[in-house]
Structures are given as structure tokens and as C-alpha cells.
Amino acid sequence: MRLEAIPNPSHLRRYGFPALAIAATVLVASVLSWVAGAEPFATLGLIVKGATGSRLAILETLNRATPLIFTGLAVAVAFRAKLWNIGAEAQLYAGAVMTVVIGTSAWGVVWLQLPLMALGAVAAGALVLLGPVLLKTRFGVDEVVTTLLFNFVMLLFVSWLVEGPLKDPMGMGWPKSTPIDRDLRLPRMVEGLRLHWGFGLALIAAVLVWLMQARTVLGYEIRAVGQNARAARFAGIPVNSVLVKTALLSGGLAALAGFSEVAGLKGHLTRDLSPGFGYTGIIVAMLALLHPLGVVVAALFVAGIFVGADSMSRAAGVPTYLADILLAVALLFMVLALGLSRYRVVWK
């Protein structure tokens, strides 16, 4: 058995296989919920309803999508340059730490302090990815290993912070940081609706990243380095410097997820601030085919499944693990479908 590239795949092939992947995902999910003892299609209906069925559900989905848009963009930007940033989780926490540090220091100049929190977060996240990328460009150290392992280092560091220097003295001994001031919270996008400006910021970021990739010299250079680093170097593109710029951008975007979770939603730092937003960002980016605007759609889809599964679980008694399985299966089928839309299998 071998794969033969199809030079110019037809539209049917290009869109048919991804559609088939979605259908197959629905089928697997149905079988699983049937195994769990629930009515198969009713379960899926409950997930959809739980994610979009009410104003509250929709707002919850949008809130949950916000950090996923940021981490999805971070991964998409890096993967375009074939820089395998698996460390969005660590960069998210770096952003969250910086947000709390700046947000809990007493200044009194509120209009300046909130943007500074965001900028500080971006700088911290960028710095976290700078180390692995310099190790890669200088010594050829594999960034998959360094960025992945740094996630655990960062989580331990945060554990120490919330037990030590940043610990809330009024927190009744819980491992959490001092909350940032009420005035330093991200305002709501519409008065009365529980949706903070982090979501708006994420949408703006997606559009800016898309503009950057499609319309700027840097975006073009990043794509060139990712597609063929040797040709890029031959054409005079400084490959290492492009990789460093990509890393700063990617780390900064992931850190904004931490900023928006702290300043928009939680108000303080805990070690369970992120239920794996950094890792889920990889799924989001892959489902979006690394397209920045696709990231928004994919993040809404993934967030909807998580939110919907919570509510489905309460109603139908199927464990929320179904959501994780659903996403994993969707990703696998999608990757397979993308392969099949460009390659044909020859049995011989």
C-alpha cells in the first residue's frame, strides 16, 4: 500500500472528504452515547442545545471560545512556520502571572494599567517561547520537547507562586492569588450581558493575524520559511530571525489567553486557571487548517462541544468525557480526510 499525490484534486475530493469526516464523527459519537445507555441522537441534540439553546448557553460558549481563539491563533501562527509550539499552556500561564502582578500593584492610573497588563502578558508569553526557539536556531534542540516540558515547569512555578509570593492573604488558605482590582477588570462588551471584551480582543487578534499572514512581508516570509526553509534562505530571507519573530508573536498570542481569563473572567490566578486551553489550541488550529479566521470558527465549535457536553451530561447522564472523545475523533477523521483529499491510496 502506498500513497500517490494527486496534483490537482477536484472540488468533490477537497470538500467531500472533510464532510465525510464530520458525518463519521457524528456516527462514532452516537454509537458511544448508545453504549453509555442514552438515546444516540438525543445526546447530540442535547449537546447542540446546551451550547446554543439559550442566550445564557451562547454567552457561555463565546466565553469558553475566547481563550481557545488566542491559543488556536498562537499554534496556527507557529505551525505555519513549521515551528512546533506545544507550549501554549505555559505561555498562557506566563501571561496570567504577569496580568496578576501588574494588576495587583497599586498605581492609581487605571486607564494606563489595563493596557500595561495586556502588554506585560504579551511580553511574558513571548519571552517564554524565546528560550526554546533560540535553543532551536543556535543548537538544533527540538522545540517539541522543550516547549512541551516547559508546560510542566511553568505549572509548578505557578503552584509555588499561588502558595507563596502571590498568595491571597484573605483567601482562607486556598492556593490562589490576590484578586486584581475591580476597576482593572475587562469591561463587558454589552451592558447586562455576561460577555467580556476578551472575546472582542480575540476577534480583533484573529483579523490582525489574518492580515499579517496574507498581506505583510513578514507573513509571506513566515509562510516561505514553513514551506521550504532552504528556498527561503536561498532567496535571502533570514530564516532564524523570522523564526524568532514568529515565536514572539505566537507566545504573545497564547499569553493573551491568560490575560483575558484573569482580567475578563476569574480575576485571580489559580493553578487550574486553564483546563488545557493550550493543548486544545492545537486541535483548534488543526481543525482550522491553520487559517486565522478558521481558528475563530473552530474555537466556537470546540467550545460549543465542551459547554454542550456539560449540559448534556446533567440531562442525559452521559459523562462529559464524551466531549473529549468527540474532539479527538473529529480531529483524527479531519486529518485523515485532509490526507485523502490530496492523496490517493494505491493497494499493491
Binding site: R223, Q227, N228, A231
Partner: peptide, 8 residues
Amino acid sequence: KAGTIADF
């Protein structure tokens, strides 16, 4: 490999 980028 050096002169062009195939998917560009």
C-alpha cells in the same frame, strides 16, 4: 528545492 517553493 532551492529555487522555488512548490506550493507557492
